[in-house]
Design a binder for these strands. Structure first.
Length: 430
DNA sequence: GTGGGGGAG
DNA sequence: CGTTCTCCCCCAC
């Protein structure tokens, strides 16, 4: 295992180096035996360093292992997979035996920091008791066992493949006051237009193929070379009603959302109509009806509206190809994409590359532990340079073309010949 | 397949 | 450092 950690930290060093020299990004890395520990240890030595959680890992007798002493000093809520709700339940559970004569925090909330170690060593603590505490209707099955594992630094979840397209695209906005129908319609128009732009940006691929270029074509060269990578089958409208004011000054702060969905109308994929036209139709024919389902009455006050394109189905599968190639593509169109997307996509790509390496560029964090080195010791060796990890790995890989497919002039969809007749009918609507 | 809960970043 | 905006997975029905 020492060897694997060594390789991992060299790999991380190398990836960080090429990310920096070729793309100009700095990032932090954490190296350990699973995603959980890598992620946690990767919080150290930001923003430039990398950290390896060194052995001894969990073993036989004493608790002198590094995993236990490392994870025990984390606040429960800091563990990935333990969010606000679960952390709250855990805190209540462990700090309720002795009523805790805390200082006079008058806000009524028991927000004492509870460390992982305190939960782990709590009397009677076990996977089973956690299931009792955390389980219930609506909660994932076996949550007790999974949280117990997390508290012990165990995590057997796979490093996942990055997808070429997301599962959903949504845009939302929050409002201080939104009570008239006219205002709502105006906002729906804005949101729908943004969503359509996002769909074009994320789901529409510029097809730079010179394919038999029928240059004789219309002047619509602009649309002719674009096609959808995926089609959202569903459109969903969500709202968040403003929680009723409580007179005691304590805000209810419920994030509760309600939603209704409908089939995504086919006209949104039409590349010939103008965005405004499509957006207008989407609002009138789909979003407003959904809104009326959601709020039949008249007395509402919304703090948020979300419009989502969901149920994305890949268009003609095509390249199941490496995510590395997708990453390269995404970097190419970075000029038109928000900064945050770049960061996240870069993350996923690198995470995916090999085993338990976690890279992150995100926010600051407390630094406590120090088991690795940041930089100076992690030097790329000669053998490392000689191996196959160079930039070409990120972008090569020629994809297999779908030769027997045809592209719809109207929306760019790729389909086999026999499907074209039926598909044309989609574009002829009542 | 739909609507909701919880979580990550 | 807290809030906002996206996106994810899971569950019950």
């Amino acid at each position: 295992m020492q060897l694997r950690l060594h390789l991992g930290s060299h790999l991380a060093q190398h990836l960080r180096l090429i990310l920096h020299t070729q793309k100009g990004y700095t990032c932090t890395a954490g190296i350990s035996t699973n995603k959980l520990l890598s992620k946690l240890v990767g919080n150290l030595h930001k923003p430039h360093g990398q950290t390896t959680l060194l052995p001894p890992y969990a073993n036989d007798d004493d608790e002198l292992d590094n995993v236990t002493s490392f994870i025990d000093n984390h606040e429960v809520g800091k563990i990935p997979g333990i969010g606000f709700k679960l952390a709250q339940k855990l805190r209540v559970h462990v700090s309720q035996g002795p009523p805790k004569p805390d200082d006079g925090q008058a806000d009524g909330d028991t927000k004492e920091a509870v460390l992982v170690g305190a939960v782990r060593r709590h009397p009677g603590m076990s996977a089973e008791s956690l299931e009792q505490v955390l389980g219930g209707p609506g909660t994932p099955h076996g949550i007790g066992a999974r949280i117990w594992d997390l508290l012990n630094g165990c995590d057997d979840t796979e490093v996942g493949q990055a997808r070429d397209v997301p599962r959903q695209i949504s845009i939302e906005d929050s409002y201080g006051r939104l009570e008239t129908f006219e205002e709502v319609v105006k906002q729906l128009r804005i949101l729908a237009t943004s969503l359509l732009k996002r769909m074009h940006m994320d789901l529409l691929e510029e097809d730079d193929e010179i394919l038999e270029s029928r240059a004789t074509h219309t002047g619509a060269t602009d649309n002719a070379r674009r096609r959808w990578l995926a089609f959202p089958k569903t459109v969903r409208l969500s709202t968040r009603p403003r929680p009723p004011q409580r007179p005691d000054g304590n805000r209810e702060r419920s994030m509760a959302r309600i939603s209704r969905s409908a089939p995504m109308p086919n006209f949104v994929f039409n590349l010939k109509e103008s965005l405004d036209t499509i957006s207008d139709r989407l609002v009138k024919e789909t979003l407003i009806p959904l809104f009326r389902q959601l709020h039949p009455g008249k007395g509402w006050n919304l703090s948020l509206i979300n419009v989502a394109a969901t149920n994305l189905v890949d268009a003609a599968s095509e390249k199941g190809g490496g995510a590395g190639r997708d990453i390269a593509k995404m970097f190419q169109r970075q000029d038109t994409v928000l900064k945050q997307f770049r960061v996240e996509d870069a993350n996923e790509g690198v995470e995916m590359v090999e085993e338990k390496v976690e890279l992150t560029t995100s926010a600051p964090q407390a630094k406590l532990y120090e088991s690795g080195r940041s930089g100076s010791e992690d030097i790329i060796t000669g053998s490392q340079k000689d191996n196959t990890w160079d930039e070409d790995r990120w972008e090569s890989e020629d994809e297999d073309r779908v030769e027997d497919s045809f592209r719809c002039d109207e929306c760019g969809a790729i389909m086999p010949v026999f499907a074209m007749a039926a598909h044309e009918r989609f574009h002829v609507e009542p």
